[in-house]
Computed example of a mutant assay.
Amino acid sequence: MIDKDFTIVIADDHPMLLSGLNEELTRNGYNVIGQANNGAKALDLILKLQPDIALLDIDMPLMTGLEVIKTAKEKNSETKFVILSFHREPEYVVQAKALQIDGYLLKEDSFVEIDSCMETVLSGREYFSNSFDTASLDSASEEMTKLKTLTPSEVTILKLIASQKNTVEIAEELFVSTRTVEKHRSNIIDKLLLEKGTNTLTNWALLNRVLISKI
């Protein structure tokens, strides 16, 4: 039986979901010390209240849950971070693993799984919802491995692409030719095993900008 003598901050931009989660946690004996309906407020509560666990949605105004986690970790927060989201797509799992979050639950999970997750992360272990299959988690680890094959120059260019700079702007910033940037882009696409296309790398970089910021 889990010892519930620890503090929790929860964040979700849907009022009914936030209220329902708070009521369910409180009814089950958990100590919820803060609620937020946007990412900026969630970050503020985490840094001020220093909860043991933060349960965060991904899609929130002002800052996403992943951006909250990244910023809090940069400020040396010791809070355990658990994502609670509808998103099960591989790109979100990859970003979660890159941020070394403690847990990832799906909103379709039963409350029993929330219990299991909290017990696991408080013991210092990682917890991903049982709804995730092993193949998708392994695939996320493979994506991170691919990123590690990039050269420093390729990483720099990928970060600039993620910041929505085009080839000409990147060339000007790095004092290289557009041809050099295009060559790097082609190499990055090959190393990440992406389909070749005009906007393939740009779309991938924008979707995975939190992950890219960690390399």
Results as ranks from 00 to 15, higher is better:
K165A: 09
K107S: 02
D12F: 02
R185E: 09
T149W: 00
I101C: 08
N28G: 08
M63G: 13
V9H: 05
D12T: 02
V168A: 15
L160Q: 07
Q95V: 04
K107F: 04
C117V: 03
N187V: 03
I46V: 15
L66W: 15
Y30M: 09
Y127C: 04
S116Q: 12
G29E: 11
T167S: 14
L207S: 13
S136G: 00
Y104S: 10
A205C: 07
S153Y: 00
E89Y: 01
L62E: 15
T120G: 05
V210I: 15
T120K: 12
S213A: 11
L174K: 15
A162M: 02
K165L: 14
I215L: 11
M118Y: 13
V32S: 09
I33C: 10
H184V: 07
E24N: 08
V82H: 03
I53N: 09
C117F: 02
Q100H: 14
A42F: 07
I33R: 10
T7A: 07
L99H: 08
I212R: 05
D44V: 03
G20M: 04
A162Y: 04
E169F: 07
S116L: 11
N76G: 09
N166T: 10
I188R: 03
C117N: 03
S136E: 11
N130L: 09
H14A: 04
E126N: 06
A162Q: 01
L66S: 10
F175E: 15
N203Y: 10
F81M: 07
A11R: 03
R209F: 08
G29I: 10
P15Q: 03
E108N: 06
N203H: 13
K159I: 02
E172C: 08
L21S: 07
I10N: 05
T64Q: 12
A54M: 13
S123R: 10
I8S: 05
I46R: 04
R179H: 10
S139P: 00
L18E: 01
V112A: 11
D13V: 01
V94W: 12
N199K: 14
V82R: 04
L47G: 06
F81A: 05
V168S: 15
R27S: 13
T145W: 01
I170S: 07
K97I: 13
E89M: 02
E154G: 01
I170R: 06
T7W: 06
D52K: 14
T156G: 00
V210K: 06
S123V: 00
G103F: 06
T134C: 01
G65E: 12
E182N: 13
F132Y: 11
A42G: 07
N199V: 03
Q100L: 11
I157A: 02
E169G: 06
T79K: 08
